[in-house]
Nucleic acid binder design. Structure first.
Lengths: 153, 153
DNA sequence: TATTGTTATACTCTATAACTATA
DNA sequence: TATAGTTATAGAGTATAACAATA
């Protein structure tokens, strides 16, 4: 299972991501949001809205699924679908006031929650980690296009 | 959204993992396996089997879900549930011959598929990346226990 | 013809909790 | 009492493809 020298890296990547998911997922579910829903809220936070297409690209949720995720968020009054001026095929998705306040109530404490753990790392260490991740990602994206594109058809 | 200096690291981690999922998920689905099913097969590969509890801990699949995943793999003849000598509550899950050959047919070509991309990285670079991931994970696991424990009750 | 988003289908995963058998 | 797995339930994500409206 460890013939190839890069397998430990991939295993560690998976474990690392799962640690992150567990750490953040716990917080998120307490507000009654699923990871996908939080992803949408977090992506819309601090923006003035975007099309479903762009939202799908950024969250990596395919368009068929996205419709359902957005439906549930609309039901809960957290987002709004508006017609996009200039292109009547497109819809612009924005946070409602309630959505914005969920974003603030969840995201900021979330950051605050993570803060002490990350305080142990120096700026240099953080840069090294970020550089490592970027390098790893670029290797895996060889010929597959950007991380956040081309998923919705 | 980027007040905290560690947020870019988390964003990059998520993107990096998604790149990996996309890269490997594509291959896996072609064999008709879901990520969870592949996870089980890969975890059982090169072992002589393990209990559902251990399998759940390693794959991070909770026990309720695991039953269903295993059912589907049994249906397809890829795994077997056997009684564990010494503890009649426990079941030992092992790959069947068919399961082992799926493991070999999928996993090795999978590694071969990834190989050229990773060949660009030197041994030193790989170590740096692995060290970064380990450091990042350890920070996120502060007080949360090991990556692969305590998920099933 | 191509793009945006919705609908439809069938399957799978998720969280949770109650339950059986065994220890 | 605690542990190993199963069952049950309700909700949500996934892949895929066909579809309507617009460009």
């Amino acid at each position: 299972m460890s013939q190839a020298p890069f397998l430990p890296v991939l295993r560690e990547l998976a474990c690392c991501y799962q640690a992150f998911e567990r750490l953040s997922g716990h917080h998120i579910r307490q507000v009654g949001l699923t990871p996908g829903q939080f992803d949408v809220i977090a992506t819309l936070g601090n923006t003035c809205g975007m099309s479903c297409r762009e939202l799908g690209e950024r969250t990596l949720i395919t368009k068929g699924t996205l419709t359902g995720v957005l439906d549930r968020l609309v039901e809960r009054g957290l987002i709004r679908r508006e017609t996009t001026p200039g292109d009547r095929r497109s819809l612009t998705v924005t946070l409602t006031d309630a959505g914005r306040s969920v974003f603030e109530d969840v995201f900021s404490p979330h950051v605050a929650y993570l803060e002490p753990a990350f305080a142990q790392l120096s700026a240099t260490e953080l840069s090294t980690i970020e550089a490592s991740l970027k390098q790893l990602r670029s290797v895996m994206e060889q010929g597959f296009g950007d991380c956040c594109e081309k998923l919705n058809n």
